[in-house]
Simulated scan of single mutants.
Amino acid sequence: MVTPIDRDGRLAARSVVTLMGWSAGQTMDLTTEPGPIVVARTGRTVRINRRGFLRLPLAVRRTCRIAPGDRVLVVANQRHGELLVVPMAVLDDMVDAYRRSHDIGDER
């Protein structure tokens, strides 16, 4: 799912949080990796707010260069109990790397 980030760092879409079985007040750990942000179920870093929104703290948004209004790809990995939040710039880089590794030229 692609969703925007608001000025307070909230993911606009709550349906992915619900899909994961997470609810208001539940605490999560955010791990910033090269590329996506992994949001794990266990931990104490952030809390899903009372309205069911997951908020990315400012430090995480700065590290990942996510600005208010930016869209991110949110992928639920239910098997591992995590969400991957991928900024569009990272997704562009992933697609470029795939195209280069498969010798797919720009055929426009």
Rank of each mutant, 00 (worst) to 15 (best):
V86L: 05
V86G: 09
I48K: 02
M94G: 01
V75S: 10
P87M: 03
A67C: 10
R44K: 13
R51W: 05
G43N: 09
L73I: 14
A59D: 14
R100W: 08
L84N: 11
R62N: 15
D96Y: 00
V72K: 05
P57T: 05
Y98S: 07
A76I: 11
I48D: 04
S101A: 09
V60H: 06
Q78C: 10
R44L: 14
N77C: 00
E82G: 10
I48H: 04
Y98M: 08
T45R: 13
V90F: 01
L83K: 06
D92Y: 00
A89D: 08
R61L: 06
L58F: 13
R79P: 11
T45S: 10
R47P: 15
D70C: 04
D93N: 10
D92C: 07
V90C: 09
V95E: 12
V46W: 03
R47G: 08
D103K: 07
L83R: 09
E82K: 14
L58E: 15
L73V: 15
R71E: 10
R62Q: 15
R99C: 12
P87H: 01
R61Y: 02
M88Q: 08
V90E: 15
L54N: 01
R47V: 14
D103W: 06
V86N: 11
A59Y: 15
A76E: 15
L56P: 13
T42V: 12
R99L: 11
S101C: 01
V72Q: 07
I66L: 03
P68A: 07
R79K: 15
L54W: 02
V75R: 13
G52P: 01
D92Q: 09
N77P: 02
R44V: 14
M94F: 00
N77D: 11
F53M: 01
L91T: 06
R62C: 10
V95P: 01
V74M: 06
D70V: 02
C64F: 00
D93M: 01
F53D: 01
V86C: 12
G43W: 07
R62D: 14
V46R: 09
V90Q: 11
I66K: 09
P68G: 02
R62S: 14
V86I: 11
H102V: 08
M94N: 00
R71H: 07
R71P: 02
C64W: 07
I66W: 02
Q78K: 13
T63W: 09
D70M: 02
G81A: 07
L58K: 12
R61P: 03
M94H: 00
I48L: 00
V46K: 05
L54I: 03
V90M: 06
V60I: 03
V72T: 04
T63M: 08
L58Q: 15
P57A: 08
R100E: 13
M94T: 00
N77G: 00
D70F: 01
H102Q: 08
V46E: 09
A76C: 06
S101F: 01
V85R: 07
L56S: 08
G81W: 00
C64L: 13
R65V: 09
R50E: 15
T42R: 07
L91H: 06
V95N: 06
G43K: 04
D92K: 05
R55M: 11
G52M: 03
G81S: 12
L91N: 03
V95I: 14
P68L: 08
